Simulated assay, not measured.
Amino acid sequence: MTENELSKIVFDIGLKIHKKLGAGLFEHVYEECLWYELTKTGLTIERQKLFPIIYEELKIANAFRLDIIIENKLILEIKTVDYINPTHKAQLLTYLKMTGCKLGLLLNFQSDIFKNGVARIVNFL
């Protein structure tokens, strides 16, 4: 399955969750709901996955933690903030570069309209 096909599945699930719960809850609530819905799809999903960074001979074992990664292709970063700012996008782009993934989605469940809270971040490697 391509990154775009995966992102369509995630968007539809996110929209469903947002319609049922609305905005204003903590990030972990939306993450838990996404996890629950994604496990129904049969896709390979990892949650709160720790990744190392290697700098010369130094390995930093738990350098960063991904909210959700799907099929080792698509990274989801879940937010509940007033708006997605450049720092959030830079964070996700760094995750993409460090993992070699090509596509990430920032899902801001604080947005009144779900689609306005979604940002696609692309890593052209």
Results as ranks from 00 to 15, higher is better:
99 T>H: 08
82 D>Y: 04
84 I>W: 05
35 W>K: 14
71 E>W: 01
65 R>K: 11
68 I>Y: 01
16 K>Y: 07
20 K>G: 03
119 A>Y: 04
112 D>H: 11
116 N>H: 07
53 I>R: 10
101 C>W: 03
89 K>V: 15
22 G>Q: 11
111 S>E: 14
54 I>M: 09
63 A>C: 06
90 A>S: 15
12 D>Q: 12
57 E>V: 04
58 L>Y: 03
85 N>M: 10
81 V>S: 10
68 I>M: 11
27 E>P: 10
15 L>E: 10
40 K>Y: 10
86 P>V: 05
124 F>V: 06
97 K>A: 14
117 G>E: 00
15 L>Q: 09
98 M>N: 13
115 K>A: 08
37 E>T: 03
37 E>R: 12
87 T>Y: 12
22 G>F: 11
34 L>I: 04
74 L>G: 02
63 A>Q: 02
18 H>W: 10
106 L>T: 04
70 I>E: 03
47 R>S: 06
109 F>I: 03
56 E>D: 12
30 Y>K: 09
89 K>L: 15
112 D>P: 10
99 T>W: 01
35 W>F: 13
66 L>P: 02
103 L>P: 02
76 L>Q: 04
43 L>K: 14
120 R>E: 03
110 Q>L: 08
96 L>P: 14
9 I>A: 03
16 K>F: 07
10 V>P: 02
88 H>W: 08
38 L>T: 07
83 Y>L: 13
19 K>D: 14
87 T>V: 13
9 I>R: 01
29 V>S: 08
16 K>S: 15
99 T>V: 07
2 T>R: 08
60 I>E: 01
77 E>N: 11
36 Y>P: 00
34 L>P: 03
58 L>E: 02
51 F>D: 00
93 L>P: 13
66 L>S: 03
8 K>F: 06
46 E>V: 00
43 L>F: 07
50 L>S: 09
50 L>R: 07
18 H>Y: 10
71 E>P: 08
81 V>P: 06
6 L>E: 00
90 A>R: 15
28 H>C: 11
